[in-house]
Computed example of a mutant assay.
Amino acid sequence: MSIDVRRSAGIVTVTLDRPQKRNAVTLAMWKTLGRLFRDFAAEDEIRGIILTGAGAHFSAGADIADFAETRRTKEQGIAYEEAVDEACDAIAELGRPVVAAIRGICYGGACNLAMACDFRFVAEDSRFAVPAAKLSIVYGVRGTMRLLSLVGLAEAKRIFFSAEPFDAKHALATGFADALVEDPALAASQQLERYAALAPLSIAGAKAILNAGAMRDTPFDQGAAEAAILRALTSEDYAEGRAAFAEKREPRFRGR
């Protein structure tokens, strides 16, 4: 198994687990990630997810050695891109906070995974790159739109046109990264523990609306946004929040 999943007190850690290959992501791993994150949506007890890599690196990105078998023909290329989009969309659309905890290299498709997360906590040794121009690949539309929403037009062009690596400080300065920390996984866990005490429906609704507004390749779904607002308004948690306020106690939210 090239992906490890561990649970602790409502926080799930998903680890890309091929350290001997710098956690390069195979087609099978893309498909597994999509399935895992879709399945997480049905687990009410989950309050947050950390996505990280085993060993010294987050991930070298898509496993290029895998391409001769999985991305050789046009049809295979289309299917491969669909698997990548499905994995990243499953992360982005999950109604729980997801934090990428990054050390070492985060290249190519790994940047796509990281950008699908809500936050990117990075160590000082982190290095990022999208070397698609070195392989005559055009990055997928969804990943391109996520990069544009994070760093802006000029910086996104620099990243794509140059294919050059950039360091953690540059990632933080441009908005690609959210925090430069000594221990990304620990910092991610601490952040998610703080979120865990708050109303899950509020977080899920805000995430859905903000992500929909940031993605420029699809029209904004006003109906879905209004449904998320109504779901929270009619929930048990809304009644609990009001009761806790009146009784001057901490609320006990259940995501219902």
Results as ranks from 00 to 15, higher is better:
C117P: 01
A90K: 02
D118G: 06
A123F: 12
F58M: 01
G108W: 11
Y80G: 00
N112M: 03
E86C: 09
E75R: 04
L94C: 08
F37M: 10
I91Y: 08
A79H: 01
D125G: 00
V84T: 09
F119S: 09
L150C: 11
C117L: 11
L150P: 05
V84F: 09
E75D: 07
A92R: 13
R35H: 07
V84Y: 12
V99D: 10
F119W: 14
I91P: 10
R38L: 14
G140K: 01
L27E: 08
G95C: 00
I46C: 07
F119N: 06
R47C: 10
F119M: 11
R146S: 03
A42W: 12
A79I: 05
T52G: 05
F40P: 07
G108I: 11
G53M: 02
L94P: 01
I64Y: 15
M145W: 02
A100Q: 05
L150T: 09
E93S: 13
A90F: 03
V122T: 14
S136I: 09
E124K: 08
G77K: 06
I91W: 13
D85E: 14
G34Q: 06
M115S: 08
T70N: 10
A123N: 07
F128I: 15
K134V: 11
L36S: 11
L27S: 07
T32P: 04
A92Q: 06
V130N: 06
D125A: 03
L94M: 11
A42G: 07
P131L: 01
D118P: 09
L147C: 12
C111Y: 05
K134D: 04
I91K: 11
E82N: 05
A110T: 04
A90G: 12
A101S: 08
R142A: 15
A110R: 04
D39P: 13
C117R: 03
F121E: 01
I50Y: 14
F40D: 08
E75H: 01
E69P: 03
F37P: 10
R47I: 12
W30L: 13
G104W: 14
A83D: 03
A83G: 14
V98C: 03
I102K: 00
P131Q: 13
M115Y: 03
H57Y: 11
T52I: 09
F40C: 10
F37W: 07
D125W: 00
A100T: 03
C117N: 04
I137D: 11
L150S: 10
L94K: 05
W30I: 09
K74T: 10
A60N: 15
V138P: 03
R72F: 03
A28S: 15
H57W: 03
K31Y: 06
V98R: 12
W30N: 13
S136T: 09
V141I: 13
R71I: 13
M115W: 00
A100E: 05
A123W: 04
G55L: 01
A65Q: 15
E81G: 15
L51T: 04
I78E: 09
V25M: 13
I78H: 08
D125Q: 02
A90M: 05
